[in-house]
Design a protein around this nucleic acid. Structure first.
Lengths: 192, 192
DNA sequence: TATATCTGAGTGAACATTCATTCCGCTCCC
DNA sequence: GGGAGCGGAATGAATGTTCACTCAGATATA
């Protein structure tokens, strides 16, 4: 058997179960049974339930970052970058509901709050990620409203996440037109 | 002693503890100890932990609704209503961080998802609440973008909630100017 | 055979909930 | 007035369950 088929399977199953039942609704025994491994095997690959939860986050984060990566990105205008990133993000979320649900759980938990706090401190030191870089440039070029980055972030990404959630919960159906119009509306919120 | 001092104290303490430590991080024993009542006393007033959680939500919801109520509301224009409601909501949240944190927990849990689903079905039958009535009117008067109500909702309220959260977490400091500018930005997102 | 990997019954801690018992304020009779 | 008796309110130790995690032994691999 390949080196870490078991590890992969544990990750796959745990993501799915936690997306569905939450951190506290998912016991290690459930993960073990569904992944068809012994309860102890999980602990060969992950030190604790916490470590597993963090590894699942890294997994989802990497996949998401890949979905936001495009080659000629550097030649895009601010507006083009905004549309590209937001559309890609929304599309990724609705095409990967398990990842979305997992990330939602994660960010609305002490794990996620700690993560955001660490990110926030890092950003203060300049190691911004894709979105913050975009908003910083938009600000300094005078294209975006003169508001704190955190506010621009909320205006542009809050609605995207809420829409992904409502689409996945079946409250309405996002299609290509609606995605375009929604991202345009987010742009209206941040543009000067 | 007045009829239900103990009940009031249990509610007060439970809201605080759950806002801080979450549903699963707050045991009934913690609530009992902090409220200085016996563990069994809680069950005189609330059938179960679930029932307590729902009662706390009702409590917070009522207080919030009060904060959004103003007398001459009916004479406001759509735009005025939008600004009034959004500003009041944001102010309420940052002035009542415990309620905000509790509601955040609640809506990001199976309780909240069930609640939203029920609301959604009720709305389909026309029993809209304040915000949905506003957006419906904005739509039919052609003032707002021709998008599904759920999307308008996300565009207008998503950022408000995110900003309240980031303010309460200390990531930035909301002041009157910033509140006004942010609500204006939300209006830009939904207005035609 | 020797080493690495895997297993799942077992462990102790934590939890929500119960219930036998105590407490306390009230009424009613002497 | 006072004390006996009553009943709802309050208590917290006890209960049964669930959980994350361990480890002695089984199994696969080399």
């Amino acid at each position: 058997m390949a080196k870490s088929l078991k590890r992969d399977e544990i990750i796959r199953v745990a993501l799915e179960l936690i997306a569905e039942h939450g951190f506290h609704g998912t016991s290690m025994a459930m993960v073990a049974e569904e992944a068809k491994v012994g309860a102890g095997t999980i602990y060969r690959y992950f030190e604790s339930k916490d470590a597993l939860i963090m590894a699942l986050f890294k997994e989802a984060e990497i996949k998401m970052q890949e979905a936001l990566t495009v080659k000629p990105y550097e030649h895009f205008s601010i507006r083009e970058r905004f549309f590209y990133l937001h559309t890609s993000l929304l599309r990724y979320m609705i095409n990967n509901p398990i990842h979305f649900k997992y990330l939602e759980q994660f960010f609305n938990s002490p794990y996620g709050i700690k993560f955001r706090r660490d990110q926030f401190l890092k950003d203060k030191k300049g190691e911004s990620h894709t979105f913050l870089k975009l908003f910083s440039e938009g600000l300094s070029q005078g294209i975006m409203k003169n508001l704190p980055l955190v506010v621009l972030f909320a205006l542009a990404l809050g609605p995207i996440m809420d829409m992904a959630r409502d689409h996945i919960l079946g409250f309405f159906k996002l299609n290509d037109d609606l995605i375009t119009q929604s991202v345009e509306a987010c742009w209206d919120a941040v543009k000067k």
